[in-house]
């Protein structure tokens, strides 16, 4: 992947200041990077979620690119329509679906359909590991044992791995990214924009009020997730590769102790040492899967 240098990034803002995002919001970091990566080629499609609110209200839009607000489960289907209209009318524009993890639960049928048809779009799931806009309810990607308002003693079910699901769905491009590493995310967006078909990026988005940490720590928390091995950065563009940022953490001895990441978050304060050991075991398992995929894909 071409290295993205800070000094070369465009200074034009596509996410405008003074929007309703909370202090330290990860979606805001992701959306601003989307503008830096693809600029006014973006036609954003947004199902309900925090981003609906961030986008502005009445006559004021927080985005410098067009944005369509659509009913929950329909976002990828709307993007399919947009893509084919652009093609027929010879118009420029990349349909970009931007949704939360809740949106990807509720809209999974249309997500799956668009991917199977290889419809022309980029889908970004900004994963803050719960339905935040309605008050922190558990989603399919909420971490095992994390407290939410619908799992007050900790989530009982396993976290689903959405990016690997999309890889097995034979998407044309799949990557994981993190708001802790925006240059990597911007590079992946640019790469995705050069590929035709269905492209999917799963963005890890630690949320201060939802997870219970200080607003100044969003980037640090996202980086800790990568450094302790809990979030693995990888990319599939025809070939599966673990991204250079995550590569060192294939070696367990290089990882930051998991407790450092978990104990900084209110949703994990109740964890016992055994719980942490169990999460570590599951992370090791995840690494075995990803390393195996690098061998075979």
């Amino acid at each position: 992947m071409v290295v993205v240098k800070i000094k070369d990034l465009p200074k034009e803002k596509f996410l405008l200041p003074g929007n309703t995002s909370c202090q330290g919001c990860p979606h805001a970091l992701g959306l601003k990077s989307l503008g830096m990566a693809l600029g006014d080629d973006v036609v954003l499609v947004v199902p309900a979620g925090c981003t609906t609110i961030i986008a502005g209200s009445k006559d004021k839009s927080s985005f410098k690119f067009p944005c369509l607000h659509v009913p929950f489960a329909s976002a990828p289907a709307v993007a399919t329509g947009l893509g084919s209209a652009f093609r027929r009318l010879g118009k420029r524009g990349i349909p970009v679906v931007w949704m939360g993890d809740g949106g990807s639960d509720i809209g999974f049928a249309t997500l799956s359909g668009a991917c199977v048809r290889k419809d022309d779009m980029i889908v970004i799931v900004s994963d803050n590991e719960a339905y935040m806009n309605t008050g922190i309810q558990t989603s399919g990607t909420t971490f095992w044992k994390a407290k939410t308002t619908t799992s007050p003693t900790g989530k009982r079910e396993e976290k689903k791995d959405l990016a690997l699901i999309m890889l097995m769905h034979k998407a044309d491009y799949v990557a994981t990214a993190s708001v802790g590493y925006l240059q990597d995310f911007i590079g992946k967006l640019r790469k995705a924009s050069e590929i035709d078909g269905f492209r999917f990026i799963h963005l890890h988005s630690p949320c201060p009020p939802g997870w219970g940490f200080d607003s100044s720590e969003t980037v640090e928390m996202a980086r800790l997730a990568v450094k302790c091995g809990a979030w693995i950065l990888w990319e599939f563009d025809g070939k599966f590769k673990i991204s250079s940022i995550s590569k060192p953490y294939a070696d367990k001895s290089k990882r930051t102790p998991l407790a450092e990441y978990l104990k900084k978050q209110r949703r994990f304060r109740h964890l016992s040492d055994e719980d942490i050991a169990e999460i570590e075991r599951r992370i090791d398992e995840q690494w075995r899967v990803v390393l195996a995929l690098e061998e075979v894909f």
Binding site: L16, G18, N19, A55, G56, S57, D59, S62, K64
Partner: peptide
Amino acid sequence: ECMIAKPSKGSAGKTGLWR
């Protein structure tokens, strides 16, 4: 035209007041 939102700073007002 009046139904289309335009790009604007401060869609939530002067958010500096939140500090």
